Simulated assay, not measured.
Amino acid sequence: MEPRPSARIEIDAPLELVWSVMLDTASYGEWNPFVERVECPSPASVGDPIVLHVRWRNGSTARSPERITALEHPTTDDEGTTTACLAYVYEGLPAKLGLVRGTRFQRLSQRPGGPTVYATVEEFSGPLVGFAGPGRVADGFERHAAGLKQRAESLR
Rank of each mutant, 00 (worst) to 15 (best):
P65Y: 06
G140I: 00
A84I: 04
R67S: 05
W19M: 08
E36M: 09
G133K: 11
P33F: 00
A138E: 12
T61W: 02
V117E: 08
Q106T: 04
S20W: 11
V121F: 13
L99G: 00
E66K: 03
L97C: 14
D12C: 12
P43W: 10
L71T: 04
S125F: 13
S42R: 12
E72D: 07
A145S: 08
I68A: 02
L148A: 00
T81A: 10
S20T: 15
R111P: 04
L52S: 03
D12A: 14
Q106D: 12
D77N: 14
A146R: 13
S125L: 09
E91I: 12
V51Q: 11
V89P: 03
E79Y: 12
V54S: 07
G92V: 02
A70D: 06
V38W: 11
R101M: 10
L148R: 00
W19A: 05
V38N: 06
Y28S: 10
R55N: 03
P14N: 02
V38G: 05
I11F: 09
R101Q: 06
C40Y: 02
G98A: 09
L108S: 01
G98M: 06
D48E: 05
G140E: 00
V129M: 06
V38K: 10
E2W: 13
G98V: 09
G92S: 09
E16L: 14
H53I: 09
Y88S: 01
L148D: 00
P65I: 03
S6E: 14
L23A: 14
T103Q: 10
R55P: 01
T25W: 14
P65R: 02
I50C: 08
T116S: 15
E39G: 10
T120Y: 06
T116H: 13
T120A: 14
F124W: 10
L15F: 05
Q106E: 14
S27H: 14
Y90G: 00
P33M: 05
R37L: 09
F34D: 00
C85E: 12
D12P: 11
I9K: 07
E142Q: 13
S20R: 15
W19R: 04
T61Q: 10
G126K: 00
R37P: 13
L99K: 01
Y88F: 11
D24N: 15
A138Q: 07
E10H: 07
K149I: 05
I11P: 06
